[in-house]
Computed example of a mutant assay.
Amino acid sequence: MERRHFIVAGAALAMPAVTRAAVPNVPVEIRLYVGFAAGGATDLLARRLQPLLERRGHRLVIDNVPGGGSTIALNRVALSPPDGRTLGFASGGLLSLVASGEVPLRLNQFTNLVRISQDPAILVVGNNSPIRTLDDLIAAIRAARGSFSAAAAGAEGSLGHLNLNAFVQSIGGEYIYVAYSGASRIANELMGGHLGVGLVKPADVFGQIRSGELRPIVQFADERLRQMPDVPTTAERGINVFPHGKMVQMTYLVGPAGVPAPVQQGLISLFREAVLSPEFQASANEDAFLADGIHGAPLEAAVDEMFRGFQAAYARMR
Results as ranks from 00 to 15, higher is better:
2 E>D: 11
4 R>W: 03
5 H>I: 14
9 A>H: 08
9 A>R: 05
10 G>A: 14
13 L>K: 08
13 L>S: 14
14 A>S: 14
15 M>D: 05
18 V>Q: 07
20 R>V: 15
21 A>Y: 06
23 V>S: 04
23 V>H: 03
24 P>N: 11
24 P>Y: 08
27 P>F: 10
38 A>D: 04
38 A>L: 09
38 A>W: 04
40 G>S: 12
42 T>A: 15
44 L>H: 10
48 R>L: 14
48 R>P: 03
49 L>T: 10
49 L>I: 14
52 L>F: 10
53 L>Y: 10
54 E>C: 04
56 R>W: 07
61 V>Q: 12
62 I>E: 05
68 G>T: 00
69 G>H: 02
76 R>F: 00
81 P>N: 04
82 P>D: 00
82 P>R: 00
85 R>P: 05
86 T>P: 04
86 T>L: 14
88 G>S: 00
88 G>T: 00
90 A>S: 01
93 G>M: 12
100 S>I: 03
105 L>W: 00
112 N>W: 03
114 V>K: 03
117 S>G: 05
119 D>V: 07
120 P>Q: 07
120 P>A: 02
121 A>K: 13
123 L>Y: 11
125 V>S: 08
126 G>Y: 07
127 N>R: 15
134 L>F: 11
135 D>A: 15
136 D>A: 06
145 R>F: 05
148 F>K: 07
149 S>G: 12
150 A>P: 05
155 A>P: 02
156 E>M: 12
162 L>P: 02
165 N>M: 09
175 Y>V: 11
177 Y>E: 05
180 Y>L: 14
183 A>M: 11
185 R>N: 10
186 I>K: 07
193 G>Y: 12
195 L>Q: 11
196 G>C: 12
200 V>E: 02
201 K>H: 12
205 V>K: 09
205 V>D: 08
206 F>C: 09
206 F>H: 11
209 I>S: 07
211 S>P: 13
214 L>W: 03
215 R>W: 12
216 P>L: 01
218 V>K: 05
221 A>Y: 06
225 L>V: 09
226 R>P: 12
227 Q>C: 12
227 Q>I: 08
230 D>A: 06
231 V>C: 10
231 V>P: 07
231 V>F: 06
233 T>E: 08
234 T>Q: 13
243 P>D: 02
245 G>C: 06
245 G>D: 15
246 K>L: 09
247 M>D: 14
250 M>S: 13
251 T>Q: 13
253 L>D: 12
256 P>K: 01
258 G>T: 01
261 A>Q: 09
263 V>F: 01
266 G>R: 02
270 L>I: 13
274 A>E: 09
278 P>A: 10
279 E>G: 12
279 E>V: 14
281 Q>T: 13
282 A>W: 02
285 N>A: 10
286 E>I: 05
293 G>Q: 06
296 G>N: 06
296 G>H: 11
296 G>T: 09
299 L>P: 07
301 A>S: 13
302 A>P: 09
303 V>T: 03
303 V>I: 15
305 E>R: 12
307 F>E: 02
308 R>Q: 15
310 F>L: 09
312 A>R: 14
314 Y>C: 04
317 M>Y: 05
318 R>N: 13
